[in-house]
Structures are given as structure tokens and as C-alpha cells.
Simulated scan of single mutants.
Amino acid sequence: MCNRAQRGDIQNELTLFGAKKGARFNEGPLQIHPAQPGTVIRLQDGERVLEQMT
């Protein structure tokens, strides 16, 4: 992963993917580094949710 990766605007991501914030969502740092939390959209019970995963 490139050390210059940055997450986008959260509201734009939610709108673009038709997702909602997950129960444990935390915006976290703007820059994303290897082995650190990053924002992902995943399916949960048939709905897209925004979460953080490492």
C-alpha cells in the first residue's frame, strides 16, 4: 500500500455506495498506513455499512 493513501469525504462515500455508518464506526486518522485501521464498506445483513478494519 502506498503511504500517500487518504480516506475520502465520509458523507460522499456513504452516498456513493448507498451505505450507512456501522455501529462501531470511528473516522480515525485522515492518512492510511499499512497495519493501521482503514475505512471499508462491507455487507452486513444485506446492507452496506461503513466500518474500520486493519
Score class of each variant (00 low, 15 high):
R48H: 11
F17D: 11
R24H: 02
I10C: 10
F25W: 04
V49E: 05
T54S: 12
L14K: 02
G8C: 07
E51Q: 04
P29W: 15
E13V: 07
I32N: 00
G28D: 14
G28R: 07
K21A: 09
H33T: 02
G8D: 09
I10Y: 00
A23G: 05
G46V: 07
H33N: 08
E13L: 06
D45T: 02
G8K: 10
I41F: 01
N12Y: 02
L14T: 05
E47Q: 11
F17K: 12
L50C: 05
G8M: 04
E47H: 09
Q11C: 09
R7Q: 10
E51H: 05
T39H: 05
E51Y: 06
A5K: 01
T15P: 01
A19T: 01
C2S: 12
V40M: 08
H33Y: 15
F17M: 01
A5S: 12
E27F: 02
T54A: 10
N3R: 14
N3I: 14
D45N: 11
G46R: 12
G18C: 10
R42K: 15
D9T: 05
Q11E: 15
E13A: 15
T39P: 06
Q31A: 15
P29L: 08
V40T: 02
G28L: 14
M53N: 11
Q36H: 06
N26G: 13
L14E: 00
T54I: 13
R24C: 04
E13P: 00
N12Q: 13
P29D: 15
A19S: 05
T15M: 11
A19Y: 05
H33I: 14
M1P: 05
L50I: 03
V40N: 08
T15Y: 03
P34H: 12
N26H: 10
L30K: 08
I32Q: 03
V49H: 03
G22K: 00
R7M: 03
T54R: 14
I10M: 07
R24W: 14
G18L: 03
I41T: 00
Q36C: 04
V40C: 11
M1V: 11
I32G: 04
P29H: 13
A35I: 03
L30V: 08
